[in-house]
Design a protein around this nucleic acid. Structure first.
Length: 723
RNA sequence: GGGCUCGUGGCGCAGUUUGGUUUAGCGCGCCUGCCUGUCACGCAGGAGGUCGCGGGUUCAAGUCCCGUCGGGCCCGCCA
């Protein structure tokens, strides 16, 4: 039959009546202390368990779940309506909060004895004095159960074996306990018979101990209570969702994005949304407390063809002219410094029309920051405080500041990248000096043509099979490495087909430098410096993941500093800015702009955490003459400068204060705090890798009229959405 | 621009190597009925698939070939 729930409800006008929607609690809020109170909840149906005379429904909202119970004896109408309720229906219920009753009586022990010295140290003994169960610390978990007592459990509850991971909670001192088997996720209630207690002190002999099946759900924060419903309003039925609203369900990305409104109902997604909000709030508060003004800058601005591809927006008034969406508010934030704002920040959306990666989207969010009369140390200090505030306040992750600083060249040398993951070792080791006179031509040729030979030692790698090594060779091939030489270190010496090419001492030196131990393998790459860095750097992280060498609980923050100002583009025989056009040089090297631009050091800094670049910034050029020299080095003609940056150059000549800034990437920060490996997981409405939005079908074809107004003629065939 | 990989009921997957014994199977979900203590409820019964799309090879295509659309990872790109 078709799954069309709507018809069932159109015949029940009672469901369409408007009850008060004012709830008394969220679904994750009720606790044992609320027992006896009446409550009204709104939420979505997580699951329904229909037992005929009684129906259980888990009602969910963004805070959690509460079990609500429909009992024909409490309210026949609500019970009848509840039988039609299905997953994701939206309900409004009211009723009484009640402690979950003990279930089936399992067994009884006569002549139990309770002893206590205080509320926290107590025991229950059998009549012959053997301890049945006891707890003598403040830790609820520290419970001992006698073998005899365990045996009684085994007799009655054959489906489960009581595990060793037990928790006991005192319900009423000397009378009732809640025993939780954490591993099996089951509870039991242990009662000393109340009738006997009325007349005798609790620690006297002759009590009766009863054990019941518990109905508490230890997995739910609200698991000690339930809501006995006396009134149900079905606010809206729902089609069966395309996938269950649960964590850890694997669903294809396009389906998740197409039904993002359902995907976002999942608890982890709700937690991420909440954490992202907290991170933004913490940032706002911190920036405010430190004297920064939040100022908005235009979304429609001019295109500057430096750097990334711009996202363009056609102008209706000026045919053939386009706005660009900001790659970042770079120029505006500098102009704000020129404007005397002194300290600016903005939670800014940025757009870069480049291909996506697991940590890159077409549009993303930066905490854009700029400050006047500031140098490197000032920005780093403010940023460290900001990171500490965000990670601790939003992520409950303690952060120690200040962060270490690592020069760019050292990072490249040791890790092969300027965004190193320092949670594990396997650092790259230079071997060019000792390998130059080996007989291994792969090495000697690379060195002779100005290249490098470097190596890493992989713990336990001596176990790698031929097939493993072939796969790794293929892996480094992605980074243009032509091969991957290897030598296994064993207790008997070196093992590899290439051992014969080395002179005595060469492999020993390699072993000493890489720190390889017997049982390890050394991997060598010989090539141009950037190929060696890419191949070994990526191999290093690849193997660390594969071999589980990464402590996922750690957050290793690291400043990368002392970048070069320019990078030589060998193909086009000219310099390019390493960071961007407005990055300042260090005082020590600024003089080299005229003579040796390649040696100029910039005042650029990146903050790296666990292999992700999470902030990037610099001290800016604030003097016209220096900016002019940079344009000269980059061979940007005066005409180009005037047309592209004219207003900016103007402003530099009207009293620009020294200023510096940085831009932490909010998406990646939240990714790190949530331990997510994909940026889509921390964006409410992300785009697919091809830049499509499966929910709204953007980008879409527009009408001929719209195009005509913009004087745009589209050359490509307008392919309709294929799905 | 390029490489790798995936696409089979609502979801997740098996089947694709070696084309035909497959009436395309499994788990979850869904539907109907029963059930008063479940919480991955249970029990009984049931429905649901142009194997992404197009073309080709063949007596015969989920399976082989070409193209195309979509998802993912990566190289290039990302000042």
């Amino acid at each position: 039959m078709s799954q069309e729930p709507y018809s069932k409800f159109s015949a029940h006008p009672g469901n369409l009546g408007h009850p008060s929607l004012k709830r008394t609690h969220y679904c994750g809020a009720l606790r044992l202390t609320d027992a006896g109170a009446s409550a009204q909840l709104n939420g979505w149906v997580q699951r329904r368990r229909d037992h005929g005379g009684v129906i259980f429904v888990d009602l969910r909202d963004r805070t959690g779940m509460t079990q609500i119970v429909f009992d024909a004896q409490i309210d026949a109408t609500a019970h009848e309506r509840a039988s039609a309720v299905r997953s994701e229906f939206v309900l409004n219920v009211s009723g009484t909060v009640r402690e979950r009753e003990p279930g089936e009586h399992l067994f009884q022990l006569e002549e139990a004895r309770y002893e206590s010295t205080n509320l926290l140290a107590w025991s229950v003994r059998s009549s012959d004095g053997e301890v049945l169960f006891q707890s003598d610390t403040r830790e609820e978990e520290d419970v001992t159960l006698s073998a005899e007592f365990r045996a009684r459990f085994a007799e009655v509850d054959k489906k489960y074996t009581l595990s060793d991971e037990l928790k006991v909670a005192v319900r009423e001192p000397g009378m009732r306990w809640l025993l939780t088997d954490v591993e099996n996720n089951r509870t039991y209630e242990i009662h000393l018979a109340a009738s006997r207690l009325e007349t005798a002190p609790a620690d006297e002999k002759g009590l009766v101990l009863n054990v019941y099946q518990g109905t508490v759900n230890p997995e739910l924060t609200t698991g000690e209570i339930e809501l006995a419903v006396d009134s149900l309003n079905i606010l809206n039925p729902a089609k069966t969702p395309p996938f269950p609203v649960e964590d850890d369900v694997e669903v294809a990305e396009d389906i998740r994005m197409q039904y993002r409104f359902i995907d976002l109902r999942r608890p982890t997604m709700q937690q991420t949304l909440a954490m992202r909000h907290k991170a933004a709030l913490a940032a706002r508060n911190y920036m405010n407390e430190n004297g920064f003004l939040e100022i908005e800058t235009p979304i429609l601005m001019n295109s500057t063809p430096e750097g990334a591809r711009d996202v363009l927006v056609p102008s209706r008034h000026y045919p053939g002219r386009f706005y660009a969406l900001p790659q970042s508010p770079q120029q505006f934030k500098q102009i704000l410094m020129m404007s005397g704002v002194d300290r600016y920040f903005q939670i800014a959306r940025c757009f870069r029309d480049e291909d996506t990666r697991s940590d890159r989207q077409l549009e993303f969010t930066q905490l854009d920051i700029e400050m006047s009369f500031a140098g490197v140390d000032d920005v780093l200090e403010v940023t460290e405080g900001l990171m500490k505030r965000i990670f601790e306040e939003a992520g409950s992750i303690p952060i120690e500041i200040p962060f270490q600083r690592l020069p760019y060249h050292e990072s490249m040398a040791r890790f092969g990248t300027d965004k190193p993951d320092t949670r594990f070792g396997m650092e790259l080791t230079e071997l060019g000096d000792i390998m130059a006179d080996s007989d291994f031509q792969v090495f000697t040729r690379a060195l002779a043509s100005g290249g490098q030979v470097k190596a890493i030692a992989v713990p336990g790698g001596a176990d790698f099979s031929r097939k493993d090594i072939d796969e790794l060779t293929k892996f480094v091939g992605i980074y243009r490495a032509k091969g991957l030489a290897w030598v296994k270190v064993t207790t008997d010496g070196f093992s590899s087909g290439i051992v014969k090419f080395f002179k005595p001492g060469q492999l020993e030196t390699a072993q000493a430098r890489t720190g390889a131990q017997p049982g390890d393998i050394m991997f060598f790459v010989a090539d141009r410096a950037n190929v060696v860095a890419d191949a070994l750097g990526n191999l290093r992280t690849h193997l660390a993941r594969k071999l589980n060498l990464i402590d996922e609980t750690r957050y290793n923050f690291l400043w990368i500093v002392d970048y070069p100002l320019f990078e030589w583009n060998a193909e086009e025989h000219r310099y390019e800015p390493f960071h961007h056009l407005f990055t300042g040089a260090t005082d020590e090297t600024v003089g080299l702009l005229d003579t040796d631009p390649g040696k100029v050091q910039s005042q650029h800094y990146d903050l790296v955490c666990n292999g992700y670049e999470i902030c990037s910034g610099s001290v800016r050029i604030h003097r016209w003459d220096i900016q002019q020299k940079v344009f000269d080095v980059l061979q940007i003609s005066p005409e180009d400068v005037k047309s592209r940056f004219g207003y900016f150059i103007d402003a530099l000549e009207y009293g620009t204060p020294p200023h510096a800034g940085i831009a932490p990437g909010l998406d990646r920060i939240v990714m790190l705090m949530r331990n997510e490996e994909n940026i889509r997981e921390v964006i409410a409405f992300p785009k697919s890798q091809q830049g499509l939005c499966p929910l709204t079908h953007a980008p879409s074809v527009v009408t001929e009229e719209q195009l005509a107004e913009l004087s745009i003629h589209v050359d490509a065939p307008a392919s309709a959405d294929a799905s």
